[in-house]
Write a protein that binds this DNA or RNA. Structure first.
Length: 258
DNA sequence: CGAAGGCGATCTGAACCCTC
DNA sequence: GAGGGTTCAGATCGCCTTCG
């Protein structure tokens, strides 16, 4: 099988971005700038930003922010360190910034998140009692060659490729299968699927499988079909920055009844 | 691929709140 | 009153667009 030059360039870009992500992970507690990362990759910051965004779907700053919050979530549950200590450990020099960023992304303040044991009521997958006027429907199939290992999967629509904050709608599945999202507001969204754990084990990767596609433009009253190939999470995939999900028992296709 | 300019996102630090 | 955490206004940084 011949490798064309685009494949090689793509592989080189992924390597460059992969190394930058490694640097981010290793130096999470330091003040890293895009300039630093670009220099270590031997690129100008302009070119580096463009490559990074092409490979990961998000800017370097957003990716770093997601990594910090993801690690903070882990530390809040796995340690008894104070919120102030954790904010410094993940690279924030101001606990105020950390608290505000955490709240806007996860939906709870750091201390409230810890008290709740990592659960948040913000991410609701319950079907709405009353449908939005002109809402659309998105359905498709979640495919995986490792269906036995994926565990519970969250599928949701987000305004950005980094799944953080509240999804515009979502559902929970017991295993890769046909999914249906009802009551989807019109707009441009990213469809994200990620395996999730209901029991958060400290020091383990809680979202080993992921699928991201988009942007998908949803028109009023439209019916969209989107297939999602679920794959193992790569180092260059942005982490999931949701709170743990408050979910009922997963069903293969909930919300199907209309 | 590099650079400039505009603008939105993020950060800092201080004031404020809450609990003990 | 002290310590830990949250909120907020202003400053700074980074991203996006456009052009060379």
């Amino acid at each position: 099988m011949g490798e064309n030059s685009d494949d090689r360039v793509g592989a080189e870009m992924r390597d460059v971005v992969g190394r930058a992500v490694e640097v981010m992970r290793e130096q999470l507690g330091h003040q890293l700038t895009v300039d630093d990362l670009a220099r270590s990759a031997m690129f100008s910051r302009f070119h580096f930003s463009r490559i990074f965004q092409r490979v990961t779907g998000v800017s370097p700053g957003r990716f770093l922010s997601a990594l910090r919050l993801h690690e903070a979530k882990r530390l809040l549950l796995a340690t008894s360190d104070s919120v102030t200590d954790i904010s410094y450990q993940v690279g924030y020099h101001s606990v105020g910034t950390f608290s505000a960023r955490f709240h806007s992304s996860v939906g709870l303040s750091p201390s409230a998140y810890r008290q709740a044991g990592g659960f948040t009521t913000m991410v609701s997958t319950e079907p709405r009692a009353r449908r939005r006027p002109g809402s659309a429907l998105v359905h498709g199939r979640l495919r995986s060659t490792e269906a036995d290992e994926t565990g519970v999967i969250f599928v949701g629509l987000f305004p950005e490729p980094v799944p953080q904050g509240q999804p515009v709608c979502g559902t929970i599945m017991a295993e890769p299968d046909h999914f249906l999202l009802t009551d989807v507001p019109s707009g441009t969204w990213y469809l994200v699927a990620s395996s999730v754990r209901t029991a958060y084990a400290a020091g383990t990767e809680p979202e080993p499988f992921v699928a991201v596609t988009g942007p998908v433009t949803v028109h009023p009253c439209a019916v969209l079909s989107v297939d999602l190939p679920l794959r193992r999470r790569r180092a260059v995939d942005p982490p999931l920055v949701l709170g743990r999900l408050t979910v009922p028992a997963p069903t293969p296709c909930y919300g199907a009844a209309s």
